[in-house]
């Protein structure tokens, strides 16, 4: 379903904060702040994730020069037990809060909801975005951190990072959300939780195709199309699917993936990065800067999410995936 925004909900400010390991990220220099401790000196991983959300929102408010009482809504979510880290962070921010779950696609689904609230005039300033924390996500979805299981080359590394945007009424010169596509849930029967990129690629394909079709656009109309966390192999699969449709290699070059690029060439991270914070921290730092400096005029940000749970995996269910997209122009 494609939504076209008449009021041009604008991205007024962006903030990205990452954990200590993310110093290795190629996007490191674009982050606003890097935490020195992976748990932000808290006792538990989950509290650490809460602090990560809190810190990022704080940076965002400082950058936008507003106070938390000026904020109408916080729209966010995470992957840990009923989203408690984000909910607990919202408790401290003391703003109206809607928790959203689209797995790693929450970074964009939250911006879509924020844009809708702005469009109908219900919100003047809304914070949207997502965070993920390596330790708390791994223990939730896979194994204890110190368990010695061999990960295949297709596995991805959940990042410790958060990215948030301040969405508000349009002001001249700011990047704005021109349109958005809320993705369908696509399931092509993939079952391997260590090969998420393959499961998510069809969802990204579907969402991008739907968006272009209904907007009457083609890939070459964009300066860049960014997917969230497909990783090395997921991105290859996505490009192969577009190549099937007769799209040339030159056009496919503008499709980039935050997860694939996140850690550069370091093979210890296998197929790259994943997690809601992966797409959020890249979209809302690097991509935002490219828009503000005029290198990009029009980008499509597509966050992909694998909607599995440890329970559904153990019960032998396949991995349903979704992808949400926003068209950002300047």
């Amino acid at each position: 379903m494609v939504i076209v925004f008449r009021q041009k909900p604008a991205i007024l400010a962006c903030a990205a904060v990452a954990g200590p390991l993310e110093k290795r990220s190629v996007f490191f220099s674009y982050f606003d702040k890097v935490l020195e401790d992976e748990r932000v000196y808290e006792q538990t991983n989950e509290k650490g994730q809460m602090a990560l959300v809190r810190e990022t929102c704080k940076v965002l408010l400082e950058k936008a020069k507003v106070k938390n009482l000026d904020i109408d809504y916080l729209l966010s979510g995470d992957l840990v037990n009923q989203m408690t880290p984000t909910s607990f962070a919202a408790r401290e921010l003391a703003v109206s809060f809607i928790g959203l779950f689209s797995a790693c696609a929450t970074s964009i689904s939250s911006v879509i909801v924020a844009s809708l609230l702005t469009e109908v005039g219900a919100s003047n300033l809304a914070i949207a975005g997502a965070a993920s924390h390596h330790n708390s996500t791994e223990r939730q979805f896979r194994y204890p951190i110190d368990y010695g299981a061999q990960k295949p080359a297709t596995a991805q590394w959940t990042v410790t990072a958060a990215g948030y945007v301040l969405v508000g009424q349009y002001v001249d010169g700011s990047p704005y959300i021109a349109a958005a596509t809320v993705g369908k849930v696509i399931d092509y029967g993939q079952t391997d939780p260590f090969h998420m990129g393959a499961a998510m690629a069809p969802a990204a394909y579907q969402t991008i195709t739907d968006h272009l079709k209904q907007r009457g656009q083609k890939i070459a109309d964009y300066d860049a199309i960014f997917t969230g966390d497909l990783g090395t192999y997921g991105l290859k699969i996505l490009k192969a699917m577009f190549a099937e449709d007769g799209i040339g290699q030159e056009d496919l070059k503008i499709i980039r993936d935050a997860g694939e690029e996140y850690y550069g060439e370091d093979k210890r991270f296998q197929a790259g990065a994943s997690g809601a914070g992966c797409s959020a921290s890249v979209f809302f730092s690097y991509v935002d800067l490219q828009l503000k400096t005029g290198r990009y005029q029009k980008v499509l940000l597509v966050a992909t999410g694998a909607l599995l749970s440890p329970l559904s995996y153990q019960q032998g269910q396949s991995i349903p995936c979704t992808a949400h997209a926003i068209e950002v122009c300047v």
């Binding site: 295949p152 993939q190 690629a201 192999y233 699969i237």
Partner: peptide
Amino acid sequence: MKEERYQQIEQQITPKAP
């Protein structure tokens, strides 16, 4: 995109375990 075609592409691109 046919699901079978996707499965073929996925098989081609996914690296085999050494």
